[in-house]
Amino acid sequence: MGVSMATAKMWVERWERQQRRYAVDREERFTVITDVVEHIAAGRSRPLLLDLGCGPGSLSARLVRRLPGAEVVAVDMDPVLLELGRTHHADAARYVDAVIGADGWTRSLELVRPVDAAVSTTALHYLDEPTLLDTYRAVAALLRPGGVLVNGDHFPPAAAPCAQITAQVGRRRAERTGGHRHEDWGSWWAAAAQDPELADLFAQRERRRPAPGGGGGTEQVCAARHAELLRTAGFRHVTPVWQFGDSCVLVAVKG
Results as ranks from 00 to 15, higher is better:
1 M>S: 10
211 A>Y: 00
162 C>T: 09
253 V>F: 07
157 P>N: 08
45 S>Q: 12
74 A>K: 05
75 V>S: 04
25 D>M: 11
166 T>Q: 03
44 R>A: 07
206 E>T: 15
63 L>F: 05
252 A>P: 13
151 N>A: 07
55 G>N: 03
158 A>W: 04
86 R>E: 05
170 G>D: 09
67 L>A: 04
51 D>H: 11
102 A>T: 00
99 V>T: 12
104 G>Q: 11
157 P>W: 09
132 L>N: 03
16 E>L: 13
86 R>V: 02
214 G>P: 02
147 G>T: 06
231 R>L: 09
89 H>V: 05
217 G>S: 14
211 A>S: 13
187 S>Y: 04
55 G>A: 08
82 L>G: 06
183 E>S: 11
44 R>Y: 01
94 R>S: 08
188 W>P: 07
147 G>L: 03
142 L>Y: 07
138 A>W: 04
89 H>W: 11
193 A>I: 08
50 L>V: 06
213 G>A: 14
186 G>M: 06
226 H>M: 02
221 V>N: 04
37 V>E: 04
53 G>K: 02
71 E>N: 03
150 V>K: 06
208 R>F: 07
139 V>E: 00
219 E>H: 12
147 G>M: 07
216 G>P: 03
17 R>S: 13
177 T>H: 08
76 D>Y: 05
105 W>H: 01
106 T>M: 09
181 R>D: 14
209 R>S: 15
127 L>Y: 04
202 F>I: 07
6 A>H: 06
169 V>C: 09
249 V>E: 01
237 H>L: 12
137 R>F: 01
252 A>T: 12
243 Q>M: 12
29 R>T: 14
200 D>G: 14
61 A>T: 00
219 E>S: 13
201 L>C: 09
245 G>E: 09
191 A>F: 11
53 G>Y: 00
68 P>N: 10
103 D>G: 00
33 I>Q: 13
53 G>V: 02
198 L>S: 07
172 R>N: 08
